[in-house]
Each structure stands twice: as C-alpha cells, then as structure tokens.
Design a protein around this nucleic acid. Structure first.
Lengths: 242, 242
DNA sequence: TATGTATAGTGGTCTATAACATTAGACATA
DNA sequence: TATGTCTAATGTTATAGACCACTATACATA
C-alpha cells in the first residue's frame, strides 16, 4: 500500500513495495513486473513517479528493462555495486540477508602506537573501542572492532551507537565520512575469532582494516576498524572503472 | 551546443557538454555547475531533461549535489584503484618490489560453463588459458590464470603476451579495458597453489576473481582472471571515496 | 507456406508546471 | 555580540500529457 500523505516519498514507498514482493517470492528472477502504466493506474500515481522508483532499482541492479518488452526482476546478483564505504548493514541488506549485531564490549582506552598513528592522536588522547559481532540471518559473519577518538565523539549513547555507528555519526553528531583507505588480507582465525565466529581452528578468515576520514578540509580520521570475516560466508565484491 | 533535432537524446548531449567542460578544465573538482534552472534557460530545454542528464552523471560519480546549495564537480574517480585494474607489475613497482613472471602454460580450451558464462561465449567458442606465476623480488606471490576469448584475441605472439597481457591488448590489438568486477575471498591453498606458491598445507591464501570489459558499447568481456595470492606476502589496498 | 503489415503494448524521451525542504545570507532584534 | 526571522536560490518530489522507437502478435496477402 502507498500512503500519499506520508512524508516518505512515493517513489521510495513503491521501491519498498516491489522489494517486498521480491522477498516474498511473489516475484522471482526473470519475472516481468507490471508495466509502468499499470503501476501508475493501480496506485493512482504518475507514471514518472513509477519510473523514478524503477530507475533506482535498475541502477541498483535489482531490475532490468527491455525496450518494447517490459521490466524484469534481475538474477540474484552479489555483483551489486559496492564501493566499500557502505556499512555492513547496507551491504547485507543488498544481499537480501537480515543484518543484526551483538555488542560484545565498549571500552575507553589510552592510545596504543598503532591506533594513535591511524587516528592521528597525541599521547593523552583517549579512544573508544567498540567490539561487535555482525550477523546475517542470525549467523555470525564478522567480528568487528571500531576505534574512534573520544574528543570527537564525546559522550556516547550506548543504545544508539551500537545500532549503526555511521547513522550515529550522521544524525546525532552531523559528521559525514568522506573517504577511506582499506586493506584486505587472509589469515587463520585466532582464538577470539574462532570463538565468536564459531569456526574451527585452521580455518581461514578475511581480515579487513579501514581508516575513514571526515568530510572536512583537515583530513580528520574518524574511525579505525579491524574486521575479521568468515571466509566461508563472506566475499568482497568490487566494481572498478577505468 | 545542443541540437534538438538530432536523434541523440538531449539529456545525453548535455552530459557530453558538461563532460567536455570538465575535460577542458573550464570546470574543476569542487566547482559549482550552473543551476538546473539556468541550464534549462540557457539551452531552452525542460528542467526535467536537465535533471536527467545530471542524475546520470551523479550516478556515475562525476558530480554530486547538495540540497539547497547546488551541484558540484566531484573529485577524481575512486583514485584509480589501488588493487583493481592496475596490472600486477604496476602494483608491485608501487610497493618497490621488482616484479617478474614465469609462464607455466598456454592452452586453448573448449568452453566450460563457468568461463563461457563469465565471457559471454557460446558453445563452440574457444578460449585461451594463460597460467603464470607472479613474483616480487624473485619470491612467488601469486598464481594467476587468465581466460580470454580466441575470437577477440586472434593468433597470439607468445613472447609478447606473457610479458603484459594489458599492454598486448592496448598496443597490439588496440583494445582498451573500461571496467571490471572483482571478488576477493579467503581460502586454504589447494595442491597446485601449494606447489607453485611454495607454501605449506593449511596456509591461507587470497582468492581473487575478476571479469574485465572492453571500452565499447556492447559490454564485451575480454578476460576472466583467477588469482591465488600468498596471504603472508600480499594484501589488497583500496582507496574509497564517499 | 512464407512474407509483409497493421496494431496494441512496452519502455524512452521530453515538455510544462507546481509545491516542498534545505541552505545561505541579509537583516532585525534582544 | 549573539539569536532569531525573512527571503531568494537551490535541489527534491510529483503531476499530466505527448510523441517516439521497439517488440510481439494477429491477420491479410502473395
């Protein structure tokens, strides 16, 4: 159903409607969607609005169009774009898993050499350490440790910050991440990773490290993240241009 | 200039106009574009058409918008991949190693389902398979297997093609790679990898797969590459924007 | 039987218009 | 010196209608 009086844009509501139908398997890969004109008629909205919804989903790779024929549901593609700076939650939702996370610990630490270098901190600066287990459809996927400077984040709302660190930055602190550097390597799980990821000794993991910077003109590091991903459950996807 | 009678869509002509101005450096990163209303007025076209052009460029990452402020030229693309579409040799030189490679085998194969899907081939198309060992300072780093369609590459010069596949494409065949999709995962080395990479059983490796496409308008796959990297010697680095 | 042809349906492009939300800056006010 | 308020400019969302190019199909014709 679409609510025309909602502050949520109609085209966005329609996207959600269509995604639901894909999730419910009312629509499967290769199936034709109703035509744009039918959507417009059914929901009593303009065809251009329908096109805006469909355009977005085509850009996301969820649908594809054939001129003169119709619009179809795309194959289940992990090839979704990526760019890297999407959050775990976004990433998982794109792959049509239900993301969740469990907070393992929050601590305030003095600097360590590695972290203070990455976050450009001086000797007396403190950092928060958030340790979280990331799950998809309730299966553990990654063990994530975020370091972030106390002097930028200030006092934290534990409930909010554990849900989405990025949304907390954007909405509560009005801070936007602009760019980041990331490395990916392979290793064998250590004791902690074996425990939380529920894997066996001798199984490989993907180790990701990222430093992200704020959208200001000072190249301010805002987070240093270390994540260990289960190799049997996770794969990094990238699109590269030129 | 925009030609309204041309069969080329107006929004596309406008995109080209704006791209030209960026190329000529009339517009540089961070510069504001004329407003949508100004574009519409200047070229005597509808504002919605202007938006279609700008939308496309925003989706491509060439421009970005700020609500209530304006539309701006984006910084350089994702900083030219640090791991992605550069060759192994370039990559290694950046890290100040001396790169080399050993040819292991060249074969001509019939299709297999995986490869013909990746390269969009039909049943009777043949592929070349190049298998190379990549070294840095004479230490084995990666075992690389390239699949590429015979019908595009034609007869090959074994000496040249083993040095640099990409230079061979560019210089001998005048083919340019435009973009690619890449996945990275972790695994344990199989027998072949253990042998060539000189690692021990049970040691982790990074598995990279990439499909690259030509710079034409047909989305033509030109290579499918599988590479196995020694986890103790190699790490993927990426820079990500926004 | 094979080959055009008319037609209805689809997505693609484009116009013209309107109301809304956000931003920055000028200005008045406490 | 701050703080709020108005205003003009921007991008955002949405409407309604028009014509085009392409695809599939039914039907008439050679």
């Amino acid at each position: 159903m679409i609510n025309k009086n909602s502050p949520i844009p109609i085209y966005y509501q329609l996207e959600e409607e269509i995604k639901k139908k894909i999730q419910n398997e009312e629509l499967g890969p290769g199936d034709a969607l109703p035509s744009e004109r039918e959507f417009a008629e059914e929901y009593q909205i303009s065809r251009m609005t329908v096109r805006q919804a469909i355009n977005n989903m085509v850009n996301e790779g969820l649908l594809y169009r054939q001129k003169g024929r119709g619009t179809y549901v795309a194959d289940q593609k992990f090839e979704q774009d990526l760019s890297g700076l999407t959050s775990f939650s976004e990433d998982m939702r794109k792959r049509e898993f239900v993301p969740s996370s469990e907070l393992i610990s929050i601590r305030t630490l003095n600097h360590t050499p590695l972290i203070s270098e990455k976050l450009k901190l001086t000797a007396d600066d403190l950092v928060y350490e958030f340790k979280r287990l990331r799950l998809a459809d309730n299966e553990p996927i990654a063990l994530e440790t975020i370091y972030t400077p106390v002097k930028i984040i200030g006092d934290i709302d534990e409930v909010d910050i554990t849900k989405s660190f990025y949304q907390y930055l954007e909405n509560k602190l009005n801070l936007t991440i602009d760019y980041g550097y990331q490395t990916i390597e392979a290793a064998l799980g250590n004791k902690e990773e074996i425990k939380y990821l529920k894997i066996n000794k001798g199984e490989p993991i993907l180790l990701m490290q990222r430093t992200s910077y704020l959208k200001d003109s000072n190249e301010t590091p805002i987070e240093f993240v270390k994540s260990a991903y289960r190799a049997d459950k996770y794969k990094f996807n990238m699109y590269m241009k030129r």
